[in-house]
Design a binder for these strands. Sequence first.
DNA 1: CGTATGATTGACGCCGTTCAAACCACGTGG
DNA 2: CCACGTGGTTTGAACGGCGTCAATCATACG
Lengths: 218, 218
Amino acid sequence: MGATHMLQDNAIVKHMAVPGQHYGAAESAKDHTIRLKADETIYSEGEYAFAIYQVEAGAVRIYRLTPSGQRYILSFCGKGEWFGLETGNVRTDFAEAVCDARITPFRANRNAVVPVDLLNIALTNLAKAQHKQLVITEQSALKRVAAFVHEMADGHPGDCEFDMMMSRSDIADYLGITVETVARCFTKLREKRILCLKGRLQRVVRLLDRDALISLTI
Amino acid sequence: MGATHMLQDNAIVKHMAVPGQHYGAAESAKDHTIRLKADETIYSEGEYAFAIYQVEAGAVRIYRLTPSGQRYILSFCGKGEWFGLETGNVRTDFAEAVCDARITPFRANRNAVVPVDLLNIALTNLAKAQHKQLVITEQSALKRVAAFVHEMADGHPGDCEFDMMMSRSDIADYLGITVETVARCFTKLREKRILCLKGRLQRVVRLLDRDALISLTI
DNA sequence: CGTATGATTGACGCCGTTCAAACCACGTGG
DNA sequence: CCACGTGGTTTGAACGGCGTCAATCATACG
């Protein structure tokens, strides 16, 4: 999190980053960890936004519903990532646990101090959103799925085997394609000997050829 | 710009918004207006990021080049909008004037104060990026173009006739479709009597049926 | 064993890409 | 003035990939 950002030598900006400084004070902004079961709702569109959250374990999906009722997943948040920071006071999207998860809320109590760099969180989320735009417009379903697996693999550095946790339907709504196409792309990746799928629901990936995967996403 | 955001009653956040308060001080962060000709470069990928910018007149395109050399336009910035706020010290994208334009840079000089709410800018840009994700995945080229025209129309409230300024190629790279498809969609919008196109390069839109346009984007 | 849920596979049609040509307004120079 | 070239836009024809609808498979659970 300690990433520096531009304009960092600015006096105002400096004041924003007080990591852990006020944490543990009499009136801490940090609440206790919340344990969530799979698919449990964290907040919904239209609700009052009183906190931001950090993922401790598991994964969270942030999504919106189009007027036609279709779900579009804006982002998945894994361990260490922040979500729930909005422009206004009202939620514009939904947050749910993808699987069993733990998250920590940070409330904005009066006089309490949030021990986090909000600007950094906002800019990180912006960078994620921009990268996703590139992935999505970078047409060809196979490229999108490859980029998704790559993204998941980045969340597990070192491991060549990991659990994606999300369903095919989650992946489809995240990449803007259909479940069937997602399945077809995964079989293509298997045929190309880039990965294996394991587990009851085929959500555990074993990476066989990371380089080939990356070259697909380009 | 003065939009409130969540956690606004937080002490740290309060300190960030000092609109105009320090402006005009001995060492102002605001530089003089820059005048740009069409297609002139503002900054490029890899450069050191020392300032953010506000558009005074005209329009600016923010884009990236994929490894395969394809251009993808992340956003257009019109009058009043901010761009150039990045996560790191190094530019990750390019900024160019779409047409003749005027912009104001805000440097991060030592001891100088940026009279703007950086968090608000970041969150606004994040909201824009998220909305664009919905537009793009909301497949069907016609819907994308309709959403684009709608977005342009929002920049000219009240006017039913305005200049889009960008070329078909700009629009294509912005929406992730081809120039030909963009042209076909515009003729469809003309056939549906939703708009007329004027000017030598057919970039001036006259909106005939705003409601029909909006209902297309849903 | 029957049902339910989620993943996979197949067949077919449509929409957008690709390649190509035409068009239009505006220059230039003969 | 006309011929020609240029940059941007539009239109046409053919191909291919993804969505749709449907059936099948695998595993878990009552």
